[in-house]
Amino acid sequence: MASRTTNNNTDPNSRQARIAEMRRADQARERRMKAIAITVSTVIVAGLVGFGAWVLIDQKQTEKRKQQALEKLLKEQQEIRKQPVEGEQVWDAKKLGRNHVETPVKYETNPPVGGDHHPRWMNCNGDVYKAAVPEVNAVHSMEHGAVWVTYNDKAAQADLDKLGTRVEKTPYSLMSPVKEQAGAIMLSAWGRQLTVENADDPRVAQFFTKYVQGEQTPEPGAACTNGLTK
């Protein structure tokens, strides 16, 4: 009986062809992956560049709006400062004494609006004092450009709360009681004084805008901290 012989030999040309085809397929796949990666990277980079440009433009627009708002505010303040405050009393600021003394001073008005005063000022960086403060020190604060808000027992607590909030937000201002003053609420600056009945009087805001570090200030920019605290 004749036996069947199995041929285990492989055609070398056929095997090399398959290997070459596999390599070509791998290379084509690598090229496709690289192309996809490059495309995705390009899109991402373009997106980031576009986002960065948008952020930069938005920041510039925001800064421009802030600058315009600031310029508008300054212009409005300048206009307010040009207008007199209705009902205010005015003294010649240049004729008010400015000597530093450590002896009692008798002032013509209560509260005073200027004159000789103690070498040390009251802290006036938005300070609200619950008790009376020495006049000679508060006058020194006004010499530095502070507005001094004072009140007596006739002032309503709601008005005092509103005024206290305003003072606390305003550098170069202070607030304290003056029991013997004539008006319920009085605002004083160097050579200027205004009496109002309540905190909602629009002249209050005008007085602050006009006289906090205003043109009447003998020593603009001088300190309102590191002074007397009570």
Rank of each mutant, 00 (worst) to 15 (best):
Thr6Val: 13
Asn7Cys: 14
Asn7Gln: 14
Asn9Lys: 13
Asp11Tyr: 10
Pro12Trp: 10
Asn13Phe: 15
Arg15His: 06
Gln16Asn: 15
Ala17Thr: 12
Ala17Tyr: 10
Arg18Asn: 09
Arg18His: 10
Ala20Ile: 05
Ala20Asn: 15
Glu21Thr: 07
Met22Cys: 06
Met22Asp: 14
Arg23Gln: 14
Arg23Leu: 14
Ala25Ile: 05
Asp26Lys: 14
Asp26Gly: 02
Ala28Arg: 14
Arg29Ser: 11
Arg32Gly: 04
Met33Trp: 08
Met33Tyr: 05
Lys34Met: 12
Lys34Val: 04
Ile36Gln: 15
Ala37Ile: 02
Thr39His: 02
Val40Asn: 03
Thr42Asp: 06
Val45Arg: 03
Leu48Ala: 09
Val49Phe: 12
Gly50Arg: 03
Gly52Leu: 01
Ile57Asp: 09
Asp58Asn: 12
Thr62Pro: 00
Lys64His: 06
Lys64Thr: 07
Lys66Phe: 04
Gln67Ile: 03
Gln67Trp: 03
Gln67Thr: 07
Leu70Val: 05
Leu70Arg: 14
Lys72Ala: 15
Glu76Ala: 12
Gln77Lys: 08
Gln77Pro: 00
Gln78Asp: 09
Glu79Val: 11
Glu79Tyr: 01
Ile80Tyr: 03
Ile80Asn: 02
Ile80Asp: 05
Arg81Asp: 05
Lys82Pro: 01
Gln83Phe: 01
Gln83Tyr: 00
Val85Met: 01
Val85Asp: 06
Glu86Cys: 00
Gly87Lys: 04
Glu88Pro: 02
Trp91Ile: 01
Ala93Trp: 05
Leu96Arg: 03
Leu96Lys: 08
Gly97Glu: 07
Gly97Cys: 05
Gly97Val: 05
